[in-house]
Computed example of a mutant assay.
Amino acid sequence: MKHTDDIRDRVFARGLSARIHAAMELRRRYRLMSFCHSHAQAIAHHGLAALLPPQVELVHGPGCAECVLPASRIDRMIDLALAHGVTLCVSDAMLRVPGARHASLLEARAAGADIELADTPGDALALARVHPQREIVYVAAGFEAAAAATAEALMQARALGSTNFSVLCSHVLTPAAMRHLVADDGIGERAQINGFIAPSHVSETIGVTSYRSISSDFVKPVVIAGPQTVDVLQAVLMLVGQINECRADTENQYTRAVTEAGDTHAQRLMDEVFEVRESFVWRGLGAVSRSALALRPAFAQWDAARRYALAWDESTVETAMADTRAATAQANFGAICAPFTPLRPRPADTANVGACCARAS
């Protein structure tokens, strides 16, 4: 059945490709930005760009959820593991993201830091229950879908009265980053984004409504797309149609999973556990207003930053990058970030804006 489905997908994809070619207006430009890791995989691994006409350019957003974290945060994670003797639980993707003072969590683990892989915050909480003598710190990174899972784990930790489990929260918000990219003249104007392919799993959580202000306030079409190659192609066709008609609406290609309101249960959990930070530094973008989450005071007992008095110093490398990003942002959009060598923040290279970390599935 899988092979039959693959054949059907290929036929459908060729049909969508033909429709996109037929819809081209030669004097128009179609520069479309995606944010989703699944979309990056579909584009990179299945040669999707080869199915598109030359007028259509696909670029990836600020980076995957781990790579957008500032280098100073990676350094503080490593300091925490080395100096406080905690067990740091991280995703596999986080291991190779470079810091400024330290090379990476992977090299810190090789140097003796107690760093373990945890696919979910629930896995880290389970580890804390099995080993009550160890201090378990879960590094919570990712966009809204991952934040919902962290909120659920923290609610469970509170219900259990867990005392050896805490969370280092670095969750970031997708619509805020999109707004920043089109509102900041130094980035948005140079990038010349004509439309957004909105992420799949994030949109399942936050719903269609969350993107409508992007379309209305900045006159940018947005199409939410599913994770498959044919989903992305169909989203491209929908965006091409909007651009040709000079429309800027928010449309939902991924209707089989995304609703107008999103997952309201997950949203209620997140609202109870998190509050929005006034500002958060992204690697390559600098400070982005109201673009990340922090734990509410009610969950201070499980907040690793408060428990270990961590001071984030994001005023060195990150600020230098932000100061010069306008001059180089255009060149960096669409840069390729190899999965085993994520882009390192260098003053001469400025940013991983548009980096595509297409990890192996």
Rank of each mutant, 00 (worst) to 15 (best):
L127W: 01
A348E: 08
Y211P: 14
T87S: 01
A71I: 09
A128N: 15
A44R: 11
L160H: 06
G99P: 02
R73P: 00
L58N: 05
P342K: 00
A300E: 14
I136F: 04
C67Q: 01
T205P: 12
V182K: 01
R96T: 10
Q234W: 12
T250A: 15
D184W: 07
T350I: 02
N332L: 13
A320Y: 06
I187M: 03
G186P: 05
D184M: 12
G99Y: 00
V222G: 09
P345L: 12
A177E: 06
R325L: 06
R247Q: 15
L173A: 07
P53Y: 04
D313S: 10
V232A: 02
S38H: 15
P54T: 06
M77Q: 10
R73C: 05
H131P: 08
D184N: 07
L117G: 03
R212T: 14
R27K: 15
T120M: 05
S170M: 14
T341I: 09
W312M: 08
G122Q: 13
D75H: 07
A83Y: 13
D79A: 02
V222H: 08
P54F: 04
V281M: 07
V167D: 07
Q301A: 14
R325H: 11
G61Q: 14
C169T: 02
L80M: 05
I197L: 15
R8V: 06
A225N: 05
S38T: 06
R14N: 15
L310H: 08
R212H: 15
D263K: 13
L88A: 09
E245I: 03
A183L: 04
P53F: 00
P199M: 12
Q242K: 05
G226A: 10
A177W: 03
A71V: 05
F333Q: 02
V240H: 03
L32S: 00
A183H: 00
D9W: 04
I206Y: 11
D9N: 12
T324C: 09
T229W: 02
G284W: 05
A147Q: 01
T150C: 13
P132E: 11
T174Q: 07
S213R: 07
H39N: 04
A358F: 13
M178A: 01
A153G: 09
R96W: 08
E260V: 11
S17T: 06
V86L: 14
T316K: 12
G284M: 10
Q55H: 04
I43W: 07
R359K: 15
A304G: 05
R10E: 15
G15N: 15
I243E: 10
P342T: 03
A13T: 02
A304E: 11
I7T: 03
I214F: 07
F165S: 03
D123A: 15
C357Q: 07
F218V: 00
V97N: 01
L181S: 01
I187Y: 06
M24W: 10
F333P: 05
I243D: 11
D119A: 15
P70S: 01
G61E: 13
S200H: 09
D92K: 02
A83N: 12
V208K: 12
A22E: 01
T174M: 12
Q267Y: 09
G195K: 00
Y308A: 04
Q55A: 02
R306G: 09
S291N: 03
Y30Q: 00
R179W: 07
P342R: 03
A348W: 07
T250M: 00
N164P: 03
R134I: 14
L173F: 04
